[in-house]
């Protein structure tokens, strides 16, 4: 029995975002997601679930984001918007001294401004609905710990945690909670560029002696959307196998 709750996930066509989409669908939510291009996984999920819809959208583009939220809410019809998962992100590697400004601008536009634009549109829907709601920002331990060659990425994720704390204060009185989930090093497409040496180093330094998986993260997302998480806001939940311990 599907829940009468609609959740928007940005960047749900692959990697962690796809895992989040699948997990939410399995938990009965109506789910809409967006990405620049439609993957086979999106078509397959649309075929299986009538309560799932993919939309094209370049996160980081304010107008496209507004159009996406409008279309997604129209698609969901009388199922009210309950939550947004700000997951879309890009990672580009290189020491800052030789990192092109254009590349860092693009990265910050997607990872930080994109999340901010999407949160803005969703908050406007919550206000219109006069409803409670949930915002979950997918940040990263890199935002608090830093990582060589990932200065712009690190800055974007630290910014996301700041956005989380500010929005939690701003919207708490409307029963809208805002939290971050900070994964550690995951075994996804995004980490596939890590050299074998770096990968082994991370595994050695992780108390759980492995990289994380998408399945390590998705339960925290569904928990933050549940009734049990109604009084949790402004927090960053770290899921990293203990590496930042």
């Amino acid at each position: 029995m599907p829940l009468m709750k609609h959740v928007i996930v940005s960047g749900g066509s692959k990697g962690l975002g796809l895992g989040i989409v699948k997990s939410l669908l399995q938990n009965g939510y109506h789910v809409s997601t967006c990405s620049r291009t439609k993957t086979n996984a999106m078509t397959e999920l649309e075929d299986i679930y009538s309560c799932f819809q993919w939309f094209p959208c370049q996160i980081g583009d304010a107008q496209q984001t507004a159009d996406f939220v409008k279309s997604a809410c129209e698609w969901a019809q009388d199922v009210p918007l309950w939550a947004v998962i700000n997951n879309a992100g890009v990672a580009k590697e290189g020491v800052l001294a030789s990192f092109p400004n254009l590349e860092s601008d693009d990265l910050l536009q997607v990872n930080l401004n994109g999340a901010l634009y999407l949160a803005r549109e969703v908050l406007r829907v919550f206000l219109r609905q006069n409803s409670a709601g949930r915002i979950v920002n997918i940040s990263s331990i890199i935002g608090t710990r830093g990582y060589t060659g990932l200065a712009a990425y690190s800055a974007s994720k630290a910014g996301l945690d700041g956005l989380t704390r500010a929005l939690a204060r701003e919207n708490g009185r409307r029963n809208i909670t805002v939290n971050s989930i900070a994964p550690g090093y995951l075994d996804t497409e995004m980490s596939s560029t890590l050299s074998d040496n770096k990968r082994q180093q991370i595994i050695r330094r992780t108390p759980m002696h492995r990289l994380g998986s998408v399945d390590d993260i998705t339960p925290a997302v569904t928990f933050l959307l549940s009734d049990g998480a109604a009084f949790i806001t402004g927090q960053t939940i770290t899921i990293d196998g203990g590496i930042t311990n």
Binding site: R124, L127, R173, R174
Partner: peptide, 15 residues
């Protein structure tokens, strides 16, 4: 009214 109430009014006006 607080600032969120005012934001609600602005969103309604836009609609």
């Amino acid at each position: 009214m607080d600032s969120l109430d005012l934001a609600t009014l602005i969103v309604s006006l836009e609609m």
